[in-house]
Write a protein that binds this DNA or RNA. Structure first.
Lengths: 274, 274
DNA sequence: TAATGTATTTTCATATAGTGGAAGTCATTT
DNA sequence: AAATGACTTCCACTATATGAAAATACATTA
């Protein structure tokens, strides 16, 4: 029942791989990325597919309700079935459930929005959030992706990874300046991550979006691997310098609680403090 | 030679419809329905596909992260990308956002779990929930499906549909007994729905699960079409007879608030009461 | 260590099933 | 009334998906 990494022989890299399915997945992804419904031609263009091909794939997906077609406007969007299937994202289901309970408390106690994210292919993917009551809030919708190096959750995830993984991801993805504060030097990033590890929380000081600050901590599974990260984020006007250590401690404690709930090992002293 | 379970009729030969994609969607659905990760053979069996076919489709989906493979255990499950795409289920996003705000208040005020669901293909699909603090709670995870005729949200949705649609759905789906209280007669169902309309909320009296009661009301869009329904559900021990009218009024008022937020028409008197 | 069993992966000959250019339909817009 | 744009269908071509069967990989048992 154990799969071996790979056989020494590599006949042809293209073995067993269904082109039409791959095209359909591209359509779904482009449709998901769009921030409004699209016409078929627009979507076909974005996916780089000929119109008749897109048409066939889309109608097939529509029969299964993975996409939906608005007859009035002639626009296509993601369908219920995609939602249904996506929510069966099992491995994280338990995590989300456990995390949300504690995230709600964390939000109430701190008054700031909390986010939950996991790492996937060198990016952070938001799974859930609990929004604060305030009008002014920084909210990342579930499913959104963000680079690891310039976000609170991302840096928290990175800080909990092995040096090899960090090196690989930083190298593969590179560090692009997004705001004046974005850390673009690998050395500085390493120093920042080391600091985060010591403190117990990562700090995103407007490195991703101007005016938005964020503190975040990693969550571990029972074997000590990083599983996810939670963050508290809000406008710099509210997340003032003097609150950072307080919020950082809160988010670190909340993350430890979730780790503990999931059966992971945690420094008991952290949990003790209220 | 061919012992395929094909239908004898030859509908449309080359008409736009991609078989391999359809098979892949079946795999995704079966995988999503399973309540744990599956081996490839198990999954292939459930989807009614030959092993090599399943293998090719799954590896294609895995490259795109729509499914994921656990190397340790040799088990397949839904991947991040399915979650990402599913969460772009656009038209409902605004609904969910608006609804959750009010559902949180409703939960706090009533102390019971609230659920949000839409209708799709004659079934109710849960979109979101706000769970109560109590240990004992009846929770339906987002993405889960349930029959319309025997659930609170389902009956609320039905009660807001046209007679034609009700007739069609009841006829197509049939009424199966699930608990001793399930309504299995179309006449009784119609009477129950009429009553629900008058009251402003539907009442599921352990018709779906023994020991679980539920009150629910429909949400309408700006053109008066039913869009969704919200419910309050909990154990019969707590949802006592005398609380029903109170909880029913609360859920009806909350549903009206959401309808109003979405630009729908609402009886002003309902909103006035606090 | 070898033999057995179970699950996965690859191969390969085959025709099925997907392809996309071009032409046809249907609304709008000018 | 003609032109534009968006979608749908047609169809000849062959690339591509198919699944039986054989090869492989691991786990278990002898």
């Amino acid at each position: 029942m154990r799969r071996k990494s790979k056989s020494p022989k590599r006949p042809h890299a293209g073995t067993g791989f269904v082109k039409s399915l791959d095209k359909a997945m591209t359509l779904l992804e482009r449709l998901g990325e769009a921030d409004s419904a699209l016409t078929m031609s627009d979507l076909a263009q974005r996916a780089g597919l000929p119109l008749p091909t897109a048409h066939r794939l889309l109608t097939t997906l529509e029969r299964r309700r993975f996409v939906q077609f608005d007859n009035e406007q002639g626009l296509w969007s993601i369908g219920v079935q995609a939602f249904v299937v996506g929510n069966a994202f099992l491995p994280r289901r338990n995590l989300i459930r456990q995390a949300l309970t504690i995230m709600r408390d964390l939000m109430e106690q701190s008054g700031e929005t909390t986010n939950l994210a996991v790492e996937s292919d060198g990016e952070a993917v938001f799974l859930a959030h609990v929004e604060c009551h305030d009008m002014m809030r920084a909210s990342s919708r579930p499913g959104a992706r963000v680079a690891l190096y310039c976000s609170g959750v991302g840096k928290a995830l990175l800080s909990a990874m092995s040096e090899d993984d960090i090196t690989r991801i930083l190298h593969e993805r590179g560090l692009q300046r997004i705001t004046p504060n974005t850390i673009v030097s690998p050395e500085k990033m390493r120093a920042d991550l080391a600091e985060s590890r010591l403190r117990g929380y990562a700090f995103d000081n407007e490195e991703h979006a101007p005016g938005v600050r964020c503190v975040a901590s990693p969550i571990f599974d029972e074997s000590g691997h990083v599983l996810a990260a939670i963050s508290l984020s809000g406008p710099t006007a509210r997340i003032t310098d003097d609150r950072i250590p307080v919020l950082g401690a809160s988010v670190a404690r909340a993350a430890s609680r979730i780790t503990a709930d999931l059966g992971g090992e945690v420094d008991e002293r952290l949990l003790a403090e209220t």
